[in-house]
Design a protein around this nucleic acid. Structure first.
Lengths: 331, 331
DNA sequence: ATGTTTCGTGCAACCGGTTGCAGTATCACG
DNA sequence: CGTGATACTGCAACCGGTTGCACGAAACAT
């Protein structure tokens, strides 16, 4: 059995409370005593039991991070950013995957709630109502969703979508398809709204869809037979799947159809044609979210929710090109 | 404050121990009483505190999963497999990322040790010696590394490498480069050994290398100027990076050089040329590892370590082709 | 010399559950 | 009707720490 605080107390001839203080409030104990305790602890290989500590302090020094799909590279980078940053604050981040299932998402939050000091909820598929309710159990920071009265980390994906469509328009495209994301996604709604607000284009929305390569692939036929020359996809995975499907159907990209993705994942840089995309600052989002959450956790009830918005930017590669003369709509 | 077991006891007019039993040993309590307790619990929104329970039972019902790089798609699939499978056993999996750093890996295990019932250690970069020592703190299952006396989940990557090289040989390649992985990697050693054992080829080993796209990219010049016609890379990420680099140097793939990766990640299916690769059963590995670990956890000290070996298989795509006549070495 | 701080430590209750043991009630059986 | 088995339930100690409070000793002020 691992050494406990009482073993250390006995070995160093002091009371358990002194040992406890040696670790959690060193300034309260005499230097000499402290050294004796530390020596004994070292000797016995003692390591404080975080779970037990959490019981009295109410602080586990753990954070939960919930994502819809851990296999999505966008999330991996967010996770890396969050974990690395949390480590510098002596916190650990536990990651859980909901498989895009709101039901699982809710359960996960419930279970995690007692084991962590706060939760980073990324791209939630749950309804606002449920999230509001869950908030009573544990502090939240919500990433990729605007929620009043809660701390948020957002990416300016609306502006990214505008920029992407602007790019298509500047290449002469007017009839544009938008591949929407999953039903509960704020980001998807944000993109859709931004796209609808662009003047002078003829927009067709497909969706909601599964935000995966397969989701994009499944739309290839529909897109090919729709009368569009440009496509903006909810994310790179879908864009890549779409390009794959279009190519298989003999539809050239960017010859016949131009495609823009969102996220800037590695696969987009190596696929042919290289994918034009809206880069999302995933790592920065992870770091920022941890900051906001720790702020919230530290402040307790009195905390004022904060809002961070991170910029996105368009990366032009080879999957977009000028619209073919014969397909042009306007003079 | 969240409701505790005592609140429920008070509300339902029974002793705390009865409430406790209602949840952890329902058959010991009278049906009528149980219903009363459950009603009160439901009413107060009571949920058992796992951390507190862990204090007495010694079982947290959490598992730790440590990977070298969460952004590597191979690991994402492993993680998904493990999480989904663990959930069916009422366990949660907490994931942590070491950033390929053995130092971080060790710290992570130490911290995790007290908070989980067991750890899945995937593709460890630590030395066997350190792992042996750490094992005293917490039960392990090691994935992608053969360690005597411990439960292991292995992929038959040696046979995969043989198959890959056999494929190259059948296309006429004799001068073959092997891009090794990171220094501490058992998988890398396994591949290297298998490659060395193939008769009749002229093998050049490059490495150790960082197992990322960038690691492959950095090797492009060296490979281009080496006198080889076929390459086997430690993983797909490196292979993709290499192809990118070679293409940039004007070296055609598979025209001048054929390239084989390992893992079968999505990016390999969409890169041009589509990558020939050795598929690894990552999800199955995750599930299997959880099974072995729970077996170990359940059995306590008396557990006999188990060994699972999963098959790999070669997927031939477009990054490999026959060696050019003028580059051939033998008749 | 006395009163007041300051410092260091011990005492004991507490966090939220679990569990071995004992006590009571009920019931079957001889 | 006595005896023992069975089914519940309560009591209290315990898991591994934390922390408010009290107490004694030393240092300082008056």
């Amino acid at each position: 059995m691992a050494a406990t605080i009482r073993d250390v107390a006995q070995a160093s001839g002091v009371h358990v409370s002194t040992v406890s203080r040696t670790f959690s409030a060193p300034h309260l104990v005499n230097t000499e005593t402290r050294n004796r305790v530390l020596a004994a602890a070292e000797d016995l290989g003692y390591r404080p039991n975080r779970a037990a500590r959490a019981l009295t302090t109410g602080r586990t020094h753990n954070l939960g991070l919930i994502v819809a799909d851990i296999a999505n590279p966008f999330f991996s980078h967010l996770i890396k950013g969050a974990q690395a940053h949390a480590r510098t604050r002596d916190y650990h981040v536990f990651v859980a995957d909901t498989d895009e299932d709101p039901q699982v998402e809710e359960e996960l939050i419930q279970t995690l709630a007692k084991q962590v000091d706060g939760v980073l909820l990324c791209s939630p598929r749950l309804s606002n109502r449920v999230i509001e309710k869950l908030r009573e159990d544990v502090p939240f920071v919500v990433v990729n969703r605007r929620m009043k009265g809660m701390s948020n980390v957002l990416m300016d994906v609306g502006s990214g979508a505008r920029e992407a469509i602007g790019h298509l328009v500047s290449l002469g495209h007017r009839r544009i398809a938008l591949l929407a994301g999953p039903a509960g996604s704020w980001t998807s709604r944000e993109i859709t709204d931004a796209a609808h607000a662009v003047p002078g284009i003829d927009l067709t929305v497909f969706g909601p869809n599964s935000p995966t390569e397969h989701g994009g692939l499944a739309l290839a036929e529909a897109v090919a037979s729709a009368d569009v020359t440009g496509v903006l996809a909810y994310n790179d995975l879908m864009a890549i799947g779409l390009v794959e499907g279009l190519t298989a159907l003999g539809v050239e990209v960017p010859g016949r159809v131009s495609v823009v993705g969102i996220d800037d994942i590695v696969a987009g840089r190596v696929s042919r044609p290289k994918l034009t995309t809206v880069a999302m600052p995933a790592e920065a989002a992870g770091r920022t979210a941890v900051d906001l959450l720790l702020q919230l956790v530290g402040a307790g009830e009195t905390a004022t929710p904060a809002l961070a918005t991170l910029a996105t930017n368009l990366i032009i590669r080879d999957s977009t090109g000028p619209v073919r003369r014969e397909l042009r709509t306007d003079p």
